[in-house]
Every structure is written in structure tokens, then in C-alpha cells.
Design a protein around this nucleic acid. Structure first.
Lengths: 358, 358
DNA sequence: ACGGCCATAGCAAGCGCTTTCTATGCGTTA
DNA sequence: TAACGCATAGAAAGCGCTTGCTATGGCCGT
């Protein structure tokens, strides 16, 4: 059989209670006793029974991180950063010493049902915290359901953190959400389009992300803000194509854009990956970048600086934001005032944008 | 307080045992009773207590997936695929119906200690299965420690699956590992170098991954095999530079390669990301690709087809392998004969390689 | 030198679920 | 009609740990 607390207690000649206290370090234990216990733990190669511990303590050391697409570095970077603040680098020890927690990355694939399912699963595991990353799905029913789940989670003692997702705008306020780190998608998108406008572009196509997603909407709004301000509001609607956040979608959408407006001089993509697809489509149609058509992305993923030409994009401090979300989830950092912090988006001008052919 | 099984039982006017049986569906329950119970579950919005369930049943519904770098799509793709076979898309219900499991993605960052720590954490949680992805660290002490942990895990009933990692070569055979999906890194690398050789290249530089990693070693061996067969074995050693699996490393290593051999006509990179860095370095030094220098990668990540020029690389069916690993971990697929399956690597010739300037 | 207090350690009662074993009621078969 | 068996439901004993409360001993103050 596996070794239990009682076995360790027997070997160390103390009561199970004492062993538990040594392992948790939350109760005074004489140094000599502690020594004896730790030796016994080592000798027997004891490993704490997580479920039993969680049951008795009514809380587990699991922290859930929900991502829309784990294969997308956008999420991978945030998740990795968050996990770096959560996971247990040091002491592989037996007890759940210090803030040792186990980060769980859950891949929703952008599906509302799965998002809810994972939230339930996390609730079932009595997770200590939950971090939701990336844009939310904008469906009244779904939002309500998520908010309800989060409220329940928070109610059960879990700390809920939103990273790259706008705060829940719901009657009842926040629903127990500890903190929200909202990306300035709108401002970033606006500045990006302003940059293009300043270069002289007028026929600007926009390859948007999936509809009903906050990220999609905010970026699109930023774009529209800039276009409106330039008196080009009428161009936005006809030159916007929605797709998913992947390369194929950028490719297809760009072809469609070219069909609608062969004289296009710039394409703004929902994100860098989509921009890659857009570049491929443009090249295939014989347009050179940026001489014939300028292209811009969003996120500034690692590969964006290495494309040819290097991609003009909007940098989001994904790593920093993820790490902060991790700290917030661990209670290692105070929540921002009002529970909401805005994460800045910085325009990165590189080689893929230039003035249109005169 | 939170709703418990007993509450549901009371409302449905049955015993807790019956509720448990309805939820687990592993015992005959009259249809009418089941109905009543399910309605009560719904009415009360009951969520099973995972830890309690795991404690009583001596097994949890957690499946751990260890990855070296979650921000790297190489791992993200495998993890996502595995999770798609594991996670609970359907029924968000209360019980742990069907094979509903929760996939945990653990990011080791390539650190041996963290790998061990996570394995312990997973053991502590009484994980139902563990999937180790990507290359292993080649250190006798570490390998032994990992093998011991895996044996213990397997001993405790967990199914252990290796994906993209060679089988454990240890006395005591496999140590309870259910299955190993080994990538044909060596063969793929050999074919890649053969391709370059066939084009006429002789001064071929190699940007290897971190030392002491099986993936690094196997790919390097494949390269050497091809070079040896061409009577160019002597060129390998002096034109090989080690680094990590990231872009920066590819950049730095390539500069070093150029220093050692300015007449270099081809660079083979440890993976696609590294190849990107190599391209950047070459361009910066005024070499055009593939006219002056050919470049090749490995893995065929999604962005590889979109670089300019498109990257010649070796395709690894990451998604398929990850999905298979997931199925294996769930016991939904029979283990391959001998517990080991080789995953083929396919050469993808694209624009970044061409014959050297004559 | 004695009562009292602090520092430690042990006792024992659960935490909420699963599961074995037992009980009940009905349909069957002779 | 009586004995038997099957299908279904309940009782209760844990699973291994945490923690409030209690017990013990040594040291202090006076």
C-alpha cells in the first residue's frame, strides 16, 4: 500500500496531528520533533494525499487557468507567465508547504460550453483560484452563466482573476472577481489605424476576429474610432471581414477584401497570426509588402519581428500581464484600485507599413 | 454552505448511496429514481466535491500533461490535441460521468527539478494519467529519478504516456510506462541533411538545441549520419553550435557559425523557431536566403509555411501524436505493440533551401 | 515551594463521497 | 400458494487528512 500520514507518525513516534502540522508549518512544533518527522517522511518517501488533504481542509492547491487556444502563443505566453508565479519551483517536498500550488491550464477552444464545463470542473476540485485569459464571448446568456459560476467559485473561497478580459459588466457588480487586467485593445487599435492614416492610407481593409468576442469588438471599435475621426467612417463597414484568429482566416479574408476593393492599400489584421495569412494572400496576388499594400497585426508575438518585412503591430505585454495575474491569483499582490487595471498597448512601427504608392 | 450529496439525497428522497450511483452510472438504478435524483441535482445546482470523491474512490479524474515550454506552439499543439481527447466537452453535468477528465498542463520550463516537482504534485493528486511531452533531459541521476517517480505513479494506478520522448532505457524496463510515442527525430534530421547534400551543399552549419536533451542528440545524430555517409563527418563538429530552443539562440548561434566559416552555404536549425533567428542573423549579415545561404528548420510549425521564403523543414504530426497520447492516457486506444510506436517525420522542401551558388 | 501559564503534543470528530454488504419487494416457478 | 431469485435501495464503514479542544509538563512569579 501507499504510505500514509499515520505511517509517518508511527515511525517518528508522534501523532498524525503532529505530522500534519510539521508538513503544513502552521503550528508550533519543537525543532527536535520536526526533525524526526521530516526524517521519517524522507525515509518512507511519503507523499501527501492531495484529495484527502483538500477534503479535510476544504480547499485545494489547484489554480485553474482558462485559455481559448493553447496552441496559440498569445495564450501560451500568458499561461506560462502566470504559472511561473504559481507553480512550485522550489521544494519538491511532501507537504503543501508555502504557497506551493499546481497550475492547471484548461483549453476551452473558444467554446462557451467548454468554458462553463471547465469552470464547473474547477469548482468541483475546489480550486484555490481561477484565471480567465483572453477575450470573452459576448452572448447575454453565456455571460450571465459565467458570471454566476464565477460568483459561486468566489463564494467557495476561490480567487478569480481576469487577464486580458474586460471586467464583468453585470448587475450585481463583478460577482466576486478579485481583479481584472484589461488590455487596451481599443486604444491600441486606434493608434495603429491612426498610424496608417498618417502615412496617407485611405482604403484600409480590416480583417476582424470572430464576432461576439470582446477582443474583436474592442479592436474593431478602436479602428473605427480612428477612421471616423478621419471622416472615413463609411469605409469601415464594407471593408471589414470577420474570421477566426488563425492564419487561414487571414488568408481567406484578405482574398475577399481584395475582391471587394482591388485598390486596397493597407490591411489591418485582428492579430499577428492573421496578419501572416494576410501577407501570404497578398503575395499570392502579386502585391508586394509594403510597397503595394501595408499590413499590420496586433499582439507582437515573438515571430512578428522576424517576418519579412518585420510586422508593424501593437505590443501587448503578455508576459508581464500573465505574471501579474498569477500573483494576483496567489494573493501575492494587492488588487488594483477598483479591482480593474488597464494594460497598455504600444504601437510598434516596423517594415510592413509604409506610405501608399503615390 | 455548499450543497452536498446528502442534500440532494434528501430532496430526492433517496439515500446518498443512490445519488452517488446515479451520478456515476455504474450501478443499476430504476429510471424513475434516476429522474428524481437528476432533477434534485439540477434544482439544487449541485456540484460534486472532487477531493471527497477522489479520496473515497482512491483515484481522481485529473490527467497531467507535462510540457517543456507552454509558450512554444510545439508543445501547445500537442497539449491541445491531447486535451481534446481528455477534457470534458459534452455534459457539464454534476457527476463525473463517462470518461470526463480534467487535463492539467504543467509547464516545466525544461527544468529537471520542476519536472520532478510536478510529477510529485501529480502523484499527490492521485492523477489518473500523466503524459510527458517532448525531449527528456539526459542526465543519469535525473533519468533515474524520473523513472522512479513514474514507476510509483504507475504503481498507484496512473497511466503513463510519453509523447515525443523516447522510451525509458532503464534496467527494470519501462517502469510501468503504458506507451511511448517516439518521434523519428534522427531519421527526419538525416533526410533533411541528405536533401541539402543532394543540392550540393558541403559547408553546412548546424544550430543544435540544448545539450543533454534527447531531442537535441537525436537530431544531431541524424545530421551526422548523413554527413558521415557523404564523407563529410569532419565538418560536423566544428560547424555545430549549441543553444536553447528559441529565436535568440538561433540568431546568436548563426552569427557564431558565420564567424567560424564565412563561406557557409547552409544552416540547419534545431527547430523552426531557431531557424527564424538564423534567418534574421543571415539577413543582417547581408546573406540572402536561399541564394547565398540555405536554411532549414524542424517541426513544421504553422508559421513555417508563411515565412519568406517559406521554410524547408521536417514535419512532425504534432497534433495527431498529441491526440493519440491523449487517447492512450484515457485508455481509449490500445497500446502499440511493445508499448512503443515511432512517429514518422516527413521532409518538407520549400523555398528556403536551394543549391549553393556555383 | 506552590499555583498558574505557555509551549507542545495528542485525541477525536469530522470533511463528503464510494462501496460492500444487507434488506426489501416483486415476479417466477413448481 | 409457497419458496426462491433478481432487481433495486439503504446502512454504514471507511478513504487520509485537518483542526478545535484537551492534556501534559516545565518554567515563571511571588
Amino acid at each position: 500500500m501507499t504510505v500514509t500520514l499515520a505511517d509517518v507518525a508511527a515511525r517518528a513516534q508522534v501523532s498524525p496531528a503532529t505530522v500534519s502540522r510539521v508538513l503544513n508549518g502552521n503550528y508550533p512544533v519543537a525543532a527536535a520533533t520536526r526533525e524526526r518527522v521530516l526524517r521519517a517522511v524522507d525515509d518512507l518517501d511519503y507523499v501527501l494525499n492531495g484529495p484527502a488533504s483538500a477534503l479535510a481542509a476544504a480547499t485545494s492547491d489547484l489554480v485553474g487557468i482558462l485559455v481559448n487556444d493553447i496552441a496559440d502563443p498569445f495564450f501560451g505566453i500568458m499561461a506560462g507567465a502566470a504559472q511561473s508565479q504559481i507553480g512550485g519551483p522550489e521544494g519538491a517536498g511532501a507537504g503543501r508547504a508555502g504557497g506551493e500550488k499546481l497550475a492547471i491550464v484548461c483549453n476551452t477552444g473558444g467554446s462557451p460550453e467548454r468554458e462553463l464545463t471547465y469552470l464547473t470542473l474547477l469548482q468541483r476540485q475546489r480550486a484555490a483560484a481561477v484565471i480567465l485569459t483572453g477575450g470573452a464571448i459576448e452572448d447575454p446568456g453565456h455571460s450571465t452563466a459565467v458570471a454566476a459560476k464565477l460568483a459561486k467559485l468566489a463564494d467557495g473561497g476561490a480567487r478569480v482573476v481576469l487577464c486580458g478580459r474586460p471586467p464583468l459588466e453585470l448587475p450585481g457588480g463583478g460577482g466576486g472577481v478579485a481583479a481584472a487586467l484589461a488590455f487596451d485593445n481599443r486604444g491600441g487599435a486606434r493608434r495603429l489605424t491612426e498610424h496608417l492614416l498618417a502615412l496617407g492610407h485611405r482604403r484600409i481593409g480590416y480583417v476582424a476576429g470572430p464576432v461576439e468576442r470582446t477582443t474583436t469588438r474592442h479592436r474593431l471599435e478602436g479602428h473605427r474610432d480612428a477612421m471616423d475621426a478621419a471622416g472615413l467612417g463609411g469605409v469601415v463597414e464594407p471593408l471589414t471581414v470577420h474570421g477566426s484568429y488563425d492564419r487561414q482566416s487571414g488568408y481567406d479574408a484578405t482574398l475577399e477584401l481584395l475582391r471587394r476593393e482591388p485598390e486596397l492599400t493597407a490591411v489591418v489584421a485582428a492579430n499577428d497570426t492573421v496578419a501572416l495569412g494576410a501577407c501570404a494572400a497578398l503575395r499570392e496576388r502579386g502585391r508586394s509588402i509594403p510597397d503595394d499594400v501595408s499590413v499590420a497585426g496586433f499582439d507582437d508575438l515573438p515571430f512578428s519581428a522576424d517576418t519579412m518585412p518585420a510586422l508593424t503591430t501593437v505590443r501587448l505585454p503578455l508576459y508581464e500581464a500573465g505574471a501579474r495575474a498569477g500573483r494576483l491569483a496567489m494573493g501575492r499582490e494587492a488588487a488594483p484600485p477598483g479591482g480593474i487595471a488597464s494594460v497598455p498597448a504600444e504601437l510598434m512601427v516596423r517594415g510592413s507599413t509604409a506610405g501608399p504608392r503615390s
